[in-house]
Amino acid sequence: MYEHVRKVAIDLVGPTNFRVVPPMMGAEDFSFYSEVVPAGFFYIGIRNETLGSIHTGHSPYFMMDEDVLPIGAAAHATIAERYLNEHR
């Protein structure tokens, strides 16, 4: 699934805008979902210092650059669409 998500992301945003996030320790239930269905955990970059979007999602100061929402929606839709087309 990682390779699938990577290919879709690079097609959508280009290779210079795709980054691998170093492993981190977190508290996340997502792994339980991925035991049942193929899954990939990815981030949509929302940092925009000009707008003040510099805090992580669990910060009380979190705010996002809403201009990235169409990119996130396109990523999710394309990941699903291509997966379904490739794994019928």
Rank of each mutant, 00 (worst) to 15 (best):
G57Q: 09
A9G: 09
F42G: 04
N48R: 04
V13P: 00
Y83E: 07
H4T: 12
V8F: 06
S34Y: 07
H76F: 07
P38E: 01
N85L: 13
Y61E: 00
F42S: 04
N85A: 11
G40N: 08
P60F: 09
P15E: 13
S53M: 01
D67N: 11
G72A: 09
H58K: 04
V21L: 10
V13H: 02
Y61N: 06
V20S: 12
S34N: 11
V68I: 13
F62H: 04
R19C: 11
G57I: 05
S34W: 07
D67P: 00
Y61C: 03
H76C: 12
V21I: 15
T50D: 13
V8L: 02
F42K: 02
V5K: 08
P60K: 13
M1F: 14
S59A: 02
I79G: 06
E86F: 12
Y61Q: 05
A9R: 09
G26C: 15
R19I: 10
D11Y: 05
I54H: 00
R47G: 02
Y2H: 14
V36T: 10
A80G: 08
M24R: 06
R6H: 04
A80L: 15
I46G: 09
G72V: 12
T78S: 11
P22I: 07
G14D: 10
N17H: 13
H55N: 05
H55P: 07
F62W: 13
N17C: 07
M24F: 13
I54S: 03
L69D: 02
D11P: 08
D65G: 09
K7I: 03
E81Y: 14
I10Y: 00
I10H: 08
R6C: 10
P60Q: 06
T16Q: 15
A75R: 03
A80D: 08
F18Q: 08
E86C: 08
P38T: 09
D11E: 15
A77S: 10
D11M: 05
P15A: 15
A9Y: 02
F42R: 03
S34I: 08
A80I: 14
G40Q: 04
D65S: 14
M1N: 03
R88A: 12
G26R: 10
E35Q: 14
D11L: 02
